[in-house]
């Protein structure tokens, strides 16, 4: 049986009846085995995800250098971030540029590529999925962009542009503050077709074929009408999941920047909040201030996530 895109809720087993009239502890006791099974994962998850995020909130009100005990300083770190730190506003601007340019663009590209790939036959589809996913799959191969954008005339981009006569002398793509952000955005887009893209590819393939047949009878004439009237409305869960993954990725851009543009970049011209946090935390060991920046980033991401998922929720059919 072919699974349709819209899934029904999985049936849940109420072990031992699970009647509401029993006390909470009684009911929990009934599910001993469930708790035992989730325990190993959840303990690690608590230790390495939940506690770090919650502890940052606490540490953001302290001065902490990892050697002595954290010392409570009230809102000092927040005052410093908002009033005294001009670098913060540079990296905030860069983060927003990255997130709001590469985020939606990559989201749209993921969707469009997945859609068009789905228009092709089976073998071409498999091949193209690999081609678009390859930059993510091959991990550290983005170093090649450093050679493509190399600042001397041996760099492919400079070399080609110079031999065509477009440039007279080589451009220092990754040093020049005017070009660095643009180059990083291109590279980031190149390696952003990740989980969300695969979700869309799968979403298109899993579409209930009978919907299209019914659509054709109802007068759907071309692929655009099919996309907007049939596919998009029934892909709401995929659109939602992909958006969450996209937000996580767009605000987390770091490795590419550090490798291609340096750590920190020239006058922080291409640093984002994430790389600035690493700079403040792991090189300067100002953990109190670094966690303050992290708390700000978490808040920013959660607000963005709420807005985006509400927007997508509006288009959802159910």
């Amino acid at each position: 049986m072919k699974k349709t895109v819209a899934q029904s809720k999985p049936p849940r087993t109420a072990l031992g009846g699970g009647a509401k009239r029993h006390g909470l502890l009684y009911r929990m006791g009934r599910y001993k085995e469930s708790y035992l099974l989730i325990a190993p994962f959840m303990l690690l998850f608590l230790l390495l995800t939940v506690i770090p995020v919650l502890a940052s909130i606490g540490l953001s009100f302290t001065s902490f250098n990892m050697l002595s005990m954290p010392r409570f300083v009230g809102f000092q770190n927040y005052e410093r971030m908002l009033l005294d730190d001009s670098i913060f506003f540079t990296v905030l601007k860069n983060t927003l540029v990255f997130a709001f340019l590469t985020g939606p663009l990559s989201y749209i590209l993921s969707f469009v590529f997945a859609w068009l790939i789905n228009e092709t036959g089976r073998y071409l589809r498999t091949f193209l999925t690999l081609v678009f996913y390859l930059p993510v799959l091959s991990g550290n191969v983005y170093f090649i962009w450093a050679f493509l954008f190399s600042s001397d005339s041996y760099g492919v981009i400079n070399g080609v542009l110079m031999s065509m006569g477009v440039l007279q002398e080589p451009v220092e793509w990754l040093i020049n503050q005017n070009t660095i952000l643009a180059v990083l955005i291109v590279v980031q887009l190149w390696m952003s077709l990740g989980t969300g893209f695969l979700t869309f590819v799968a979403g298109f393939q899993g579409m209930d074929k009978s919907l299209f047949e019914a659509g054709a009878i109802d007068g759907i004439r071309n692929r655009w009408q099919e996309l907007f009237y049939i596919t998009v409305p029934s892909m709401a869960p995929q659109l939602m999941f992909s958006a969450v993954m996209q937000i996580g990725a767009s605000f987390g851009v770091s490795a590419v920047i550090q490798y291609l543009a340096g750590f920190p970049t020239t006058q922080y011209s291409a640093d984002t909040i994430v790389t600035y946090i690493m700079d403040v935390g792991t090189t300067r060991f100002e953990m109190g201030y670094a966690t303050t920046l992290a708390v700000f980033l978490f808040a920013l991401m959660m607000v963005t996530n709420t807005i985006i998922t509400r927007l997508i929720g509006r288009f959802s059919t159910d």
Binding site: R12, S34, I38, M42, F45, L47, L48, T49, V50, I51, P52, V53, A55, S56, L59, M66, V244, M245, I247, G248, A249, F251, G252, V253, S254, A255, V274, I277, M278, G281, T282, M287, A290, T291, A294, L297, F298, M301, M302, N305
Partner: peptide, 26 residues
């Protein structure tokens, strides 16, 4: 289970590079 699922879904946002520093501290 509903409550844990909510936390798990929310944590999808927090990729490795975002939680890097707090995780380093812990």
């Amino acid at each position: 289970h509903k409550w844990i699922k909510k936390v798990v879904v929310m944590s999808l946002l927090f990729t490795a590079s975002v939680t890097y520093l707090p995780q380093y501290v812990v």
